[in-house]
């Protein structure tokens, strides 16, 4: 089929981008039990940070990524210091944090609207040009996205596996109390996890806006899609969510091609719902025995 290579290119590109977002979300859920509904806004802020860095400050294009990473990490840290750390004691944390982050998300989105206006802007941090891979012409931007995403993911995976911080994060995610007994400073871990996921979101935002455009609600739908990719894999399962990101990106690409762009998200959602009815803990999730 003639269209298949194009679908694949889209799927791989979008999948790479989503897996960055799912990584951040899964990390925060696994380590803290927190569904960060402000993640989408951190995406948006990253995209705009890159825009400002390049357009307003006149820095070279790769600084856009630096700005996005820094702002994302900063927002993550502020979320911890200003919000999360007061709420951890409450047993209804899981629920309350969702409401609180929804509030913050909308407030921040409005701030962006106020500062930059509602008109869509072009993302200056992007490459132009095409490359020919076999029979298919591929935009260099797509290649950049895939390369960057994969590199970052490998970096994060390696950090988690080998570094002291990484071990502390994994330990906290797998058994928080045992980690505490070993002297892991879990509040610092929470701070670092939020900062890291913010940085990841920031980069995702730059990449996403380079494919589409910058607008205040940029991160909202991608965040929801990334979330349901995490959920379908089993929340907290990092490699699973990356796999789910690619698979679902492929499904979305096919759907959009054959049925039209607007049916991508709905079809995705229906599939995820069906998958969750079949396996409520996620396709790769482990059934957890809850001590009542």
């Amino acid at each position: 089929m003639d269209v298949l290579p194009y679908i694949l290119v889209t799927a791989v590109t979008v999948g790479a981008m989503y897996s960055l977002a799912t990584l951040g979300l899964s990390l925060v859920w696994g380590a803290m039990g927190m569904l960060n509904m402000a993640h989408g806004t951190m995406l948006t802020l990253g995209g705009y940070a890159a825009y400002s860095a390049v357009t307003t400050l006149g820095l070279p294009w790769y600084f856009g990524f630096v700005a996005a990473i820094l702002l994302g990490a900063l927002v993550g840290a502020i979320l911890y210091y200003g919000l999360v750390r007061f709420m951890l004691r409450n047993p209804a944390f899981e629920t309350n944090i969702i409401i609180a982050t929804v509030g913050i998300a909308i407030a921040l989105e409005n701030l962006v609207l106020k500062i930059y206006g509602g008109q869509p802007l072009g993302q200056p941090v992007s490459l132009h040009g095409t490359l020919r891979l076999g029979v298919v012409p591929v935009q260099t931007q797509n290649i950049l996205i895939v390369v960057m995403s994969v590199t970052i993911m490998v970096l994060v995976a390696w950090t988690l596996k080998t570094s002291r911080v990484g071990r502390a994060i994994r330990a906290t995610a797998q058994n928080r109390e045992a980690a505490q007994l070993m002297g892991v400073p879990i509040r610092k871990v929470y701070l670092k996890v939020l900062a890291i996921s913010g940085a990841l979101a920031g980069v995702s935002g730059v990449l996403l806006s380079s494919l589409t455009q910058l607008s205040p609600p940029l991160g909202n739908d991608p965040m929801l899609k990334a979330f349901i990719m995490c959920v379908v894999a089993g929340l907290g399962n990092l490699p699973g969510s990356v796999l789910a990101a690619f698979v679902l990106a492929l499904v979305e690409a096919c759907t959009q091609f054959y049925l039209g762009a607007r049916w991508g998200f709905p079809v995705l959602l229906i599939l995820v719902i069906l998958a969750l009815i079949w396996r409520p803990y996620g396709v790769f999730g482990r059934t957890q025995v809850t001590r009542l």
Partner: peptide, 20 residues
């Protein structure tokens, strides 16, 4: 004016934190 939604979001967040 335009800060309405922002204020609303903040109110929600503050209430959940301080007065659940």
């Amino acid at each position: 004016g335009e800060y309405r939604t922002l204020g609303l979001g903040l109110i929600l967040a503050v209430f959940v934190v301080a007065m659940p």
